[in-house]
């Protein structure tokens, strides 16, 4: 009896506090607004000077490291020679872009890049949300922490090591998976997984999922912990099962963050790098493992044809921006949180 009393009184005080702080906020806002309106744009600038000063370093970093190097795009329209430099090389117009689109191999690498990016994206999106939801239901803190730690450790391991682990695991010459399947009499002779082109996307997706799953789960777990417990309590009162609670409270609570993260990763889809494909792939599966960055490496960097590489890079940037914009647009349509 006594206990319950204390509980309610506490909740009440909390609620009152919240209301009060909201009220003060509104008062503050009210006192700013008319002033800002009166003084116009510059008034606003002066009012927010501290914020502006704080943002200066970040704007500078972006200018210097992200916008500054853009002048190099000139190379894409030149027959660039290292010795002559950007100023001395001759202009060739859109020749490099024409070359890209005339090369059959380019379409292959585009297909591979997009396929592996989206497979990875979906796997990690679904995988991490599911893992977060499951972990959220675990009541034993120790068990939960242990699972979390075990799943995110591979994130800190280099791709080279991961690739070696995968290759050894799948090796036809005494690899664990083959040995187990042989012992269970599932197969008669070992399968050479790493040279089956059509399996490469799947092997790559699974390896990436294993490496990054735990890491991408962290943020979702944080969001889930931040959800209002009252909702769960209310649902429990109404007799909702665990599954119902997940479906109606946890998932909708996750969605804004999930959509935001998805938007950003789609921007990276075509820029997904080449590390994993480079270390996991081999000449036998090159038709499926070759991605745009590896293609650029071989046909631009290795041949010292930097203009061609720059043209590929420009193309990539344009595609990235288009993809981010379209996802943002879709998110806006569906009234979800968005990047900008």
């Amino acid at each position: 009896m006594h206990n319950k009393d204390r509980f309610t009184s506490k909740t009440v005080t909390r609620k009152v506090q919240k209301k009060m702080s909201k009220a003060t906020e509104q008062i503050k806002l009210a006192s700013y607004l008319p002033q800002a309106k009166r003084r116009g744009f510059f008034g606003k600038l002066i009012k927010q000077q501290q914020l502006l000063i704080m943002s200066v370093p970040f704007v500078l970093i972006a200018l210097v490291f992200s916008y500054g190097p853009l002048w190099g795009w000139i190379m894409a329209f030149q027959d660039y020679k290292i010795g002559k430099g950007v100023l001395g090389s001759s202009f060739v117009g859109f020749d490099n872009f024409v070359k890209i689109f005339q090369d059959e191999q380019f379409y292959f690498v585009m297909r591979n890049t997009l396929a592996m990016s989206f497979m990875g994206l979906i796997a990690s999106f679904v995988g991490s949300i599911v893992l977060a939801l499951l972990l959220n239901e675990v009541r034993k803190t120790f068990f939960k922490r242990a699972i979390q730690t075990i799943t995110y450790i591979p994130h800190f391991v280099s791709w080279v090591v991961i690739a070696n682990v995968v290759t050894f695991f799948l090796s036809p010459d005494g690899g664990l998976l083959n040995v187990i399947m042989m012992k269970l009499k599932l197969i008669n002779e070992p399968i050479y997984f790493m040279i089956k082109g059509e399996w490469f996307w799947i092997i790559h997706t699974l390896a990436s999922l294993w490496k990054e799953l735990g890491w991408s789960t962290i943020i979702y777990l944080a969001v889930l912990m931040g959800l209002n417990p009252e909702h769960y309590e209310a649902a429990e009162m109404d007799g909702a099962s665990r599954f119902r609670k997940m479906w109606h409270i946890s998932i909708p609570g996750l969605m804004p963050t999930a959509i935001l993260l998805l938007t950003m990763s789609i921007g990276w889809a075509i820029n997904s790098g080449f590390e994993s494909q480079f270390v996991l792939g081999n000449p036998a599966v090159i038709e499926y493992s070759d991605v745009i960055d590896l293609y650029a490496l071989r046909y631009s960097t290795q041949l010292s044809d930097y203009s061609y590489g720059m043209a590929i890079n420009m193309f990539k940037s344009v595609i990235s921006v288009l993809m981010v914009l379209s996802v943002t647009y879709l998110a806006k349509k569906t009234q979800q949180s968005r990047l900008f």
Binding site: Q105, I195, P283, A284, I286, E287, R298, Y299, Q302, L303, D305
Partner: peptide, 15 residues
């Protein structure tokens, strides 16, 4: 470029 293509094609086909 042709040489790189030839080598790529060769490597890809050997297995």
């Amino acid at each position: 470029v042709e040489e790189q293509k030839m080598d790529d094609t060769w490597r890809k086909n050997i297995p």
